[in-house]
Write a protein that binds this DNA or RNA. Structure first.
Lengths: 335, 335
DNA sequence: CCTCGATGTTGAAACGTTTTAAAGACTGAG
DNA sequence: CTCAGTCTTTAAAACGTTTCAACATCGAGG
């Protein structure tokens, strides 16, 4: 249990110096085949496991990058993470996933730890608005699905304002004039942007600002969507919105669930549009209209920006993708 | 960018020795308030970030545990991970998530890396059958959602055989006598166990073994479920099963999707039972009957077993939970 | 036979912390 | 004024690697 066999034990057992063992580990080609075999045998026999702390301390570099995700239970982020991991692997890095669970404290703790670990780079979808609190601390940081407020980091984002606009324009075109926006908290940049886009759609269509009611939620999970559904039901049907734009698909699915449960029909009684187009959106009780983001590309791009940070004269870049509306049954035209 | 300010820079800047700085970091109470302030100021001013590699190398302990998950995109595992993280946090540990994506190679790489990192403990839901290849290497390992084959590790599992039995018994009671089991690859222990349970249900009911057809898939994702659906459609309706038991909910959702798409009705043309009871199961096009596992408890228990590994005279424990059938619309009684 | 380059191997110095034993600085009692 | 304690602070020794300059050895070319 506490054998703690080190490189010197291996060296001794194989009758060579530590330097040679280290060479076998890091530059196998430089050591004579016979010696290499002997060393490998010794490693095997003693059950030697290289101590990465020591290695990293001396060598100064790490072989991992990390992604601090806003909500590991949200398929959108795991899809992005998949893209990140694929790109990282190709470059020879491992990916550690950390879940801030939308909690600024956790996020802070993880970032602190990762900086201390001297990982090769950090990707983060920050809890707070512009990730302003994410200072420069020596380890490259790239913002994912957020635009860097002050340009101190690279960032990869999707145009959330446009996304909100697409969604609500679609609803307006389908004849809706009393629309609810479900999402929150507003401290989350994405939610703010999508809300702004929604408002812009109203303006474009010449509708009054109060055509859109904000139903703020405490989070972006399914349960919050169900809660919002119940709040909607509480309204007298004359004032109740005929359509809802949800800040993400989890909310939309929750909303959908609570509608069905209370005997209301989607889209007849309430049209619903989600955001992210996660895989489950299409499989929902009523297939969900949603705003699709290029998740995989988002992840891959983020990873490559991160890995480019160490290049000689690096300039921070800000990549922005376009979202796309995917229309399904949940928002069929109003009768 | 490359300031690399160390503890000795801080010490010098504050006019104390490195030992004092270290004390401020690790035992703040032992150093005089005035000195402490001075040191903290210096840390702040120089932007010092403690080097965790060096710390860990010297101190011998880490503040991290890791969970190597079979599929980060499967909500079942993120729910388990949530339980793990909660328990870990309470004990003062951070959790790193690694995604093996059902790939034995990735799993191996991650385990290797984590051992080298000397994390405080590793949780893993192994790709292969009994996690036999996961040797004892000095770092405590606990198997999650798998029973340790040879008892060399602690494990937390759910009775998958019973789960399969519950599911298929339910289908039989609803009058089905031609049942498909969808899942794979069979190298995954869970799939094998659930299949075994399904067979047992047949035996219990006095049905012939060929009442159950195995439709083996290459993985446990939604897309594989869709593929299985198409294969089912290919069968002449006289020989086509009237019910399907899927090895997990992702498969079931995929199957459901492909049924609907091809104009078949669930449960009338095909009854479907899933496994895991993920949050999206209840929100599906046809709410999914599923076998529920105590995900959160699974995670919490796994974490506490792991953290108990370092106790003086530790004996490996094997905890097994019972699954529970949740009946919904997708498996309504046969007409 | 000598020299040279190539090829393998090695001793020892880092890397940035934590930790231990002990030195220093005070305090209050005698 | 001294001495035993009590608090603070410190010098120096780890921790387990990687790396670098230097050292052997060997065969070939002159």
């Amino acid at each position: 249990m506490k054998p703690s066999v080190g490189i010197r034990d291996v060296a001794q057992h194989a009758g060579v110096s530590n330097a040679t063992v280290s060479n076998v580990l890091n530059r196998p080609d430089v050591v004579a085949p016979a010696t290499r075999q002997r060393v490998l045998a010794a490693i095997e026999e003693l059950g030697f496991v290289r101590n990465e702390s020591a290695r990293q301390l001396r060598a100064g570099r790490s072989r991992v990058i990390a992604y601090v995700v806003l909500d590991a239970a949200n398929p959108f982020f795991t899809d992005v993470a998949r893209g990140v991991e694929d790109a990282a692997r190709e470059a020879g890095f491992a990916l550690f996933l950390c879940n801030s669970a939308s909690d600024a404290g956790r996020e802070h703790d993880y970032l602190e730890l990762l900086h201390e670990q001297r990982v090769e780079g950090i990707l983060v979808t920050p809890v707070d608005g512009e990730g302003a609190q994410i200072a420069e601390r020596g380890t490259p940081v790239v913002l994912v699905d957020r635009e860097s407020a002050d340009g101190t980091h690279c960032s990869v984002a999707v145009d959330d304002v446009l996304g909100g606009e697409l969604a609500v324009t679609h609803l307006i075109e389908n004849g809706h004039t009393r629309i609810a926006m479900v999402g929150g908290p507003l401290s989350i940049q994405q939610v703010r942007d999508r809300y702004e886009g929604a408002m812009r759609a109203l303006t474009n269509a010449g509708l009054p600002q109060d055509a859109l009611t904000l139903l703020e939620t405490k989070g972006l999970q399914v349960a919050e969507g169900r809660g919002a559904g119940e709040r909607l039901m509480g309204l007298p049907s004359s004032r109740r919105p005929t359509a809802a734009f949800c800040a993400n698909d989890l909310l939309a699915l929750g909303l959908l669930q609570s509608m069905t449960q209370q005997g209301l029909k989607v889209p007849d009684d309430l049209a619903v549009v989600g955001y992210d187009d996660i895989e489950f959106a299409a499989a929902a009780a009523v297939p969900l209209t949603s705003v699709r983001q290029p998740r995989d590309q988002l992840g891959r791009t983020a990873a490559s920006l991160l890995l480019a940070e160490n290049e000689p004269d690096h300039e921070h870049r800000h990549v922005k993708f376009q979202p796309e509306l995917v229309v399904r049954a949940s928002s069929a035209a109003k009768r």
